[in-house]
């Protein structure tokens, strides 16, 4: 039972991160390889807001999330906007460079020591009993948040006008512009939403298990989850996360703990060889790149 709970929590983590990759890729065909770093940045922002609003943890939380949203929009406005129209690969490499830059900045500003935002907020991460296993409070929050985020995103993309425009811009940016949709607004929105979900993931993970630069690796491991499901599908991201998380937890439990960092990539390679566009992805993607 504990195993199933572990899988559920890890699935939630990966899914929450993976939807950030999916959002940006779906709209602009760019892989944001700085997603892990942006996520880490959000968690560090929480450290700062926690020290500013030490009495009111929820305000600190809200402020950190809001700041992360701003960071995402700013990244688009000042960096990625210049890369629209360039080769997709150049844009991807720009995100890689951004990631390297953020990694340096985070250490410069907050130092490389392990931090504990839960403590800074004055929260205790209780361990709760469920179905004969145990789950940490932050873990439960993770699962709830992921569910909320996915339902929210689904409703947004399906029924709201901006959601529909976002899907439209992803399919045919030219036509979208002809129909009066401002691509820059849509792209900035996608970046904002993506960092927002990333921030939720980063903050909840740091509340669960502390915060240091290894968080980038978690972000990177969620990427196979997004790809296995198909980079432009939210349902795919969810299922991909489940597959990757299950493979990882079971491998660690039955085979070797050292494998944990490799398993997602092994699954990824298998997937790429047999079905490169992922479980739910659109097949034509391959030729567009």
């Amino acid at each position: 039972m504990q195993l199933a709970i572990n899988i559920a929590v890890l699935t939630a983590i990966y899914a929450l991160i993976a939807c950030g990759y999916v959002l940006i890729y779906r709209v602009s065909r760019v892989l944001n390889l700085a997603h892990g770093e942006l996520m880490m940045l959000s968690a560090y922002l929480l450290i700062t807001t926690a020290s500013l609003f030490s009495k009111t943890p929820f305000i600190a939380l809200g402020a950190a999330i809001f700041l992360s949203l701003c960071v995402g929009v700013l990244v688009y406005l000042f960096l990625m906007r210049r890369m629209t129209g360039e080769m997709v690969l150049a844009a991807v490499l720009t995100t890689v460079a951004l990631g390297v830059l953020l990694r340096g900045l985070v250490v410069l500003i907050w130092s490389a020591q392990q931090q504990n935002p839960a403590q800074a907020l004055g929260w205790v991460n209780h361990s709760l009993p469920v179905f004969g296993g145990r789950i940490s409070a932050a873990g439960a929050a993770l699962i709830a948040t992921t569910a909320l985020v996915y339902v929210g995103l689904f409703l947004f993309l399906r029924f709201s006008r901006y959601g529909i425009r976002m899907r439209a811009a992803g399919q045919n940016p030219l036509l979208a512009a002809q129909r009066g949709i401002s691509l820059h607004v849509i792209y900035a929105l996608a970046w904002g939403l993506s960092t927002l979900t990333g921030a939720l993931a980063g903050i909840l993970i740091s509340l669960d298990s502390g915060l240091d630069s290894t968080m980038v690796l978690i972000g990177l491991k969620a990427f196979p989850a997004a790809l296995v499901g198909g980079l432009d599908s939210l349902v795919g991201a969810l299922l991909g996360s489940l597959i990757i998380a299950a493979a990882e937890v079971l491998m660690i439990y039955y085979v070797d703990a050292l494998l944990s960092d490799v398993v997602p990539f092994l699954v990824l390679i298998l997937m790429l060889v047999f079905r490169p566009w992922g479980l739910f992805g659109t097949r034509e993607e391959l030729d567009r790149v």
Partner: peptide, 17 residues
């Protein structure tokens, strides 16, 4: 090391753009 990372990222971005 952090300075290195940051400067490296900046240089790369500047070249790309």
């Amino acid at each position: 090391a952090a300075f290195n990372y940051a400067a490296f990222g900046v240089v790369m971005i500047l070249f790309l753009i």
